[in-house]
Design a protein around this nucleic acid. Structure first.
Lengths: 221, 221
DNA sequence: GTTTGCAACAAACGACTGTTTGACGGCCCC
DNA sequence: GGGGCCGTCAAACAGTCGTTTGTTGCAAAC
């Protein structure tokens, strides 16, 4: 495959440095996040993964049952925390008369942006975007079943703040905003942090651009 | 992998119906487009692919040299036509004083939407989105080297029509619009064509939503 | 002090991968 | 009519894949 062109000439595959902290399960989850982001779910093999985590090959099947279950666990670990924070932020403002569109978008975007602060969180965002692209029905069902209610609650609040929009119109706009957010947060695009701006500043700029863009896209006449 | 859960209980993998029209090369390209969209570049094996195309396993390496070259050829075949039409449409309006933002977006979006009219074209859109998500540097270099000039020409025209925007600001907005378009055109989102609207109508609605959304996102104060 | 159960390990399993090989027929050109 | 080329083919190559096995060390429970 194309990606393999970047492997070193000798040595079958790059073995990232062994992470020797935490339990076996945690080391596997950490290494899985990195490798799934880099090479995809199929592309990352259990042998690469366990070597990177510094654990035995059989440990994945022992602790998680199968590679598929490991994938689900990688998602669950991050998304539980992420969506909890999103809903908490939404709860603080939902239904209030002074709540603005910016507030709701802030509640949705900020936790994701905070998550992508540290390196492994940023990698997870790429894992998530990859999952969207893979169009895998099993995974989509898993995500919809476990986290669909989050999107529904945000949609309800958007509907309250944009009463002039018909339901199909609102769905369309939310859909397009979602695409823009996924794109931006997974670092697909050409926008990269300049070396002369701090990570914090860059994240703040990203949030500002995203929110203003989303407000415009959602509420245009 | 997760996707394999959907394979039939017996029989190693689905063999799509044999397409017996056209030359061997064309049959391979057609089958590759379908299978790459369904299962990804790594996920689709040459044995599935050649079985679906009704050709011998060795035919891929004979006609294309390798699986990687086949991937490139799948892209080249569609993107050459797509970007030619985009640039032709842009040429007709670029620099003219009466040209609007909608016109430029129309020139960019319409050819892609037309391509995704037939089933195989729509599949290719998913292949393209998958390629973005794969973050594969070799593939990105290939796309940038062969089709980067298209994006540059459109960006220049956007810059002319939005002189009030700083360069970074413009890049940000184009980036976010790109994300929304990719998302929408690859059929990621929740928006699906209702059974009571024709394919043509649905495409027209998609174009309208996309363009109005993009105009709002690009030109908001 | 023995038993029980968890965790880790090397080694092997069968299946599937992309690619290469050498043979075989059909076609055109000299 | 004979010599090349071209496309196709079955078969094999050398790997990698996810998963399973049987065994070990070690700690807590009885």
């Amino acid at each position: 495959m194309l990606k393999r062109s970047f492997e070193p000439a000798r040595g079958r595959w790059m073995v990232p440095p062994v992470n020797s902290s935490g339990s076996t399960k945690e080391r596997i989850l950490g290494a899985a996040e990195v490798l799934f982001a880099q090479r995809g779910f199929d592309g990352a093999s259990l042998r690469q993964l366990t070597a990177a985590a510094g654990v035995n090959l059989a440990a994945v099947n022992y602790h998680f049952g199968s590679k598929d279950k490991l994938v689900e666990e990688v998602f669950r670990r991050r998304l539980d925390a992420l969506n909890e924070r999103r809903l908490a932020a939404l709860d603080r403002i939902a239904g209030a008369p002074e709540t603005t569109l910016e507030d709701v978008l802030e509640a949705f975007i900020r936790p994701a942006l905070d998550l992508s602060h540290d390196d492994s969180g940023a990698l997870f965002m790429r894992v998530l975007a990859r999952a969207f692209a893979e169009h895998d029905d099993t995974l989509r069902q898993f995500l919809s079943a476990n986290y669909g209610h989050v999107m529904r609650q945000f949609t309800a609040e958007f509907a309250r703040l944009l009463p002039q929009l018909s339901k199909p119109e609102l769905y369309w706009r939310i859909d397009l905003v979602t695409g823009a957010l996924t794109h931006a947060m997974s670092g697909f695009g050409m926008i990269q942090r300049k070396s002369d701006v701090s990570e914090h500043t860059h994240r703040e700029q990203t949030a500002q651009h995203l929110i203003r863009f989303a407000v415009a896209g959602l509420s245009h006449p």
